[in-house]
């Protein structure tokens, strides 16, 4: 087992003329990990990821990707990674399969276009011109191109932005497949659900700085916010008999007394106590909801902003 991190970044900085886009960030990505950079528009996600891909020079700090310095060993690095850019295009009159074959010829090793077309459900579209593809098909082609050299490390810059929810799920499936093939994936996104669903670890980035980093679960637990428990019963509960639940911060009974909302910092324990109480009271439980704090709550707490405008 290789314990060297696939990516190691120390005090990475990027400045454009006057704009300080990345202000000294540190992180590591381990082999086989799906690592997410989550942040709002202009946070510095693309700047960071494109420095690691060898596309833009860094202004300061250190970076190693697959053991290469992305500034000085661009060619070797590019030969080994797969990249899906945030903004790119192909010639209007290039056919899907031609694109895969052309780009495949640029690498020391490449996998057959047929195999890729079938895998990314582009087989029927193999002879279509690029200009005739839908947004989702273009994105699948972009992913196919990223896989053309069979890379162990993939960079996906906002792979689902601007796509329909249906197609977004499809792309999520493909990314999960890459993960199951033990490829390391770095992706950027401003969709919370995407980060929660796909990433082993997430770095929340805002104004060029990492404000929090960890597994989605760790980040949620860092939240000061409490989980919310909603209880609905068949008959009204008596407000006077409601006890003070352990760890509950606030409880509230609806006017008809049939639904109870409790905020708790330790929801599992609180919920257990509520259940016990309901049982003792001989109440008939109709429904229970438990809502944990989301990454979005964490994000809002840390940055004072929402992710999407």
């Amino acid at each position: 087992m290789n314990t060297q991190p696939v990516i190691a970044v120390q005090s990475l900085k990027k400045t454009y003329d006057k704009v300080e886009a990345v202000k000294g960030i540190d992180f590591q990505v381990a082999e086989g990990e799906v690592f997410g950079l989550l942040g709002p528009n202009g946070a510095g996600k693309t700047s960071t990821i494109e420095i690691l891909e060898g596309l833009r020079p860094r202004t300061g700090g250190n970076a190693t990707v697959l053991g290469f310095d992305p500034d000085r060993q661009k060619q070797q690095l590019k030969d080994r990674i797969g990249v899906c850019l945030q903004a790119t295009n192909l010639p209007a009159k290039m056919r899907v399969q031609e694109a895969l074959e052309l780009f495949g010829s640029f690498y020391t090793r490449s996998i057959s276009s047929e195999q890729l077309l079938k895998r990314l459900q582009l087989w029927e579209k193999r002879a279509a011109f690029y200009e005739t593809l839908s947004g989702g098909q273009k994105q699948r082609l972009a992913l196919a191109l990223a896989l053309v050299n069979d890379p162990q490390l993939l960079f996906l810059d906002e792979p689902t932005t601007g796509l329909d929810p249906q197609i977004r799920l499809e792309i999520h499936g493909l990314i999960e497949e890459m993960k199951s093939e033990k490829r390391t994936v770095v992706l950027t996104t401003h969709y919370i659900e995407e980060a929660e669903r796909l990433c082993d670890r997430v770095a929340i980035i805002d104004e060029g700085k990492i404000v929090a980093m960890g597994t989605p679960r760790e980040l949620q637990q860092q939240s000061k916010g409490q989980s919310r428990i909603d209880i609905i019963c068949g008959q009204p509960m008596n407000a006077a008999t409601l006890p003070q639940w352990p760890d509950a911060v606030e409880s509230k009974l609806s006017e008809d007394g049939k639904s109870l909302t409790v905020h708790s910092s330790r929801p599992a324990r609180t919920l257990f106590e509520i259940m016990k109480w309901l049982d003792q009271q001989g109440m008939q439980l109709e429904d229970v909801h438990l809502k944990r704090p989301t990454l979005e709550d964490v994000f809002v707490e840390l940055t004072g902003k929402r992710l999407r405008d």
Binding site: E53, Q75, Q76, K78, N89, F103, F106
Partner: peptide
């Protein structure tokens, strides 16, 4: 045109010069 349309960007990602 190829530069302005972002086509060359896609080539830049690959190991070619």
């Amino acid at each position: 045109q190829e530069r302005e349309l972002g086509i060359l960007r896609r080539y830049k990602v690959t190991p070619i010069t």
